[in-house]
Design a protein around this nucleic acid. Structure first.
Length: 228
DNA sequence: GCGACAG
DNA sequence: ATCTTGTCGC
């Protein structure tokens, strides 16, 4: 699949921030999902002491949660890790991986935040607007916002709030286990996003999409080291 | 100035 | 993210 909008990646910090403020206006916070049969999961692994990285995307069947396709590509780091500008580091390689997909997903789950971001435009929102596809931001930790501990039952979630605005949900995917941070990426509502992440996490804390993508890039990343 | 800070 | 072994527990 190809991006529906294009913009430069070789920009500086200030230009990146301006771009986020502009593109954030295109984020849709209502459900636009249609016949969700395939869901994509993405992740990136880095090589310490080098500028190499491995980006991967897996497609899982929405019903069986089994992997039906996976793409892995190797690339070089071109942007530093700056909280708030994460997508400018991981999106370039992920876009390359998406271009090689044969299967078109109807939903994408990202390892990082969606609108739970200082300018309401985290990795998930950026990827969603770029491809014009529904996305969910699913982070293991918080970037910003305050919240109350959610109930202990699986599927329970409490609002993540910043500046008096609900920017996401702190979701309990497994009973009595540390919750994860879910937020709207693009083309989906928070309740629907939390429902999907809960469905995608029948056995573990993290959804199958990110677990599978994680295993994929880590495996390839490890083989890369041993062969040197 | 100090503390926080997705991966 | 990555650096890193064993270990307590279901």
């Amino acid at each position: 699949m190809e991006p529906i909008i294009q913009h430069p990646w070789n920009i500086d910090e200030q230009e990146a921030i301006n771009l986020q403020r502009q593109l954030a206006q295109q984020v849709i916070k209502e459900d636009q999902l249609t016949d969700v049969r395939f869901i994509a999961g993405v992740d990136v692994a880095y090589h310490a002491e080098s500028d190499l990285l491995v980006a991967g995307v897996v497609i899982i069947d929405a019903t069986s949660l089994q992997v039906v396709e996976s793409i892995v590509i190797q690339d070089t780091v071109e942007f530093p890790y700056i909280p708030g500008l994460f997508s400018f580091r991981e999106l370039p390689p992920l876009v390359r991986a998406f271009k090689e997909l044969k299967t078109t997903p109807q939903l994408v789950v990202c390892d990082g935040q969606g609108i739970a971001h200082p300018r309401r435009f985290g990795l998930a929102s950026h990827l969603g607007v770029l491809f014009g596809i529904p996305t969910i931001g699913c982070g293991k930790t918080r970037l910003l916002g305050e919240y109350e501990e959610p109930a202990q039952e699986r599927g329970a979630y409490s609002p993540l709030i910043d500046q008096g605005e609900v920017i996401g949900g702190v979701l309990r995917t497994q009973p009595n286990i540390k919750p994860i941070f879910v937020s709207i990426g693009h083309g989906i509502s928070l309740p629907t996003a939390c429902a999907w992440i809960t469905k995608l996490s029948p056995k573990y804390r993290l959804p199958e999409t990110t677990r599978q993508a994680d295993q994929l890039v880590n495996k390839v990343s490890a083989e890369l080291n041993s062969s040197r």
